[in-house]
């Protein structure tokens, strides 16, 4: 039942030829996949595991194949693919035995593509959320420790972005914009390395505005919590040159939170 040949001749229509697709047992496909993984041929391995998933849907092999496919696409550097595979695994098998590993692969896929601070930090935010979920849902899994460390790094990256924009406004003497950005770093990203610089920048901004009391408080908090940080030395020198000593108003919530925080994390200095 051929149809009329249409207007443009060089496009041929596809013919139907009955032909049976042979069924290869799942175990063989799985081993072939593992063999390819050993040879670092990740794209082919990923296709092999995908075939299991399609040929034997909703079977134990399919579950194993899916986690291996996630791992293959992750190792192959195809992060957008590994994200989709990991998400599919987590929706199909939320409490499967490899769920922690899938969550870890998901977070690491975002983590590997975190750009420098001057560019959109969308992947950084997604990595943060994924690592947090891993720490909360699988606290005792072997990935929790590394997740905690990576959380610190990713938070540090987000703080770096806020600092970048804060400094942008500081240079242009838009003190309102700058102060609010540095305040965000001090309140939201206390555990990152940027908090020292944020406090020093607050000292600079308030001094430039002439509100000396605020400058002193910021410098005092910085000195109190990070006494030998180079940033504190700068802030101190700055206030000296401005002829004003840094003194801390102890009643403030910020000193209280910092006192509590230094004890728990033991980061001090």
């Amino acid at each position: 039942c051929d149809t009329l040949s249409s207007l443009n001749p060089f496009e041929k229509d596809e013919k139907y030829k009955p032909e049976l697709v042979p069924d290869v047992p799942a175990a063989n496909l799985y081993n072939e996949g593992l063999a390819l993984m050993a040879k670092n041929e990740y794209p082919d391995a990923s296709k092999k595991f995908d075939q299991i998933d399609k040929t034997y849907p909703r079977s134990e092999w399919a579950r194993k194949a899916l986690i291996m496919k996630t791992y293959a696409s992750y190792e192959g550097g195809e992060f957008s693919e590994s994200v989709n595979d990991a998400r599919r695994y987590l929706t199909l098998y939320p409490n499967g035995e490899d769920a922690a590993y899938a969550q870890y692969l998901l977070a690491m896929s975002y983590y590997r593509e975190v750009p420098d601070v001057t560019r959109d930090q969308e992947r950084t935010e997604k990595a943060l959320a994924a690592f947090q979920e891993l720490v909360e849902r699988h606290p005792r899994s072997e990935y929790a420790e590394d997740a905690k460390f990576k959380l610190q790094v990713v938070r540090d990256q987000l703080a770096g972005k806020e600092m970048e924009i804060g400094r942008y406004y500081l240079q242009r003497r838009n003190y309102t914009g700058a102060i609010n950005r540095f305040r965000d770093v001090v309140s939201k990203y206390q555990t990152t390395r940027h908090v020292e610089e944020a406090l020093q920048r607050l000292t600079e901004a308030y001094l430039a505005l002439g509100v000396v009391s605020e400058a002193q408080t910021a410098a005092a908090v910085l000195g109190h919590n990070f006494p030998d940080s180079p940033w504190y030395k700068d802030a101190y020198k700055l206030l000296q040159s401005g002829g004003h000593e840094p003194r801390e108003d102890t009643g403030s919530w910020i000193s209280r939170t910092f006192r509590g925080f230094t004890r728990s994390v033991g980061l001090g200095g």
Partner: peptide, 19 residues
Amino acid sequence: DGVVFDFITRTTPTSGSEL
């Protein structure tokens, strides 16, 4: 009232894959 001075140029190093 504002004190005029140059802001410190040193910045806390950040990371992320540079373009």
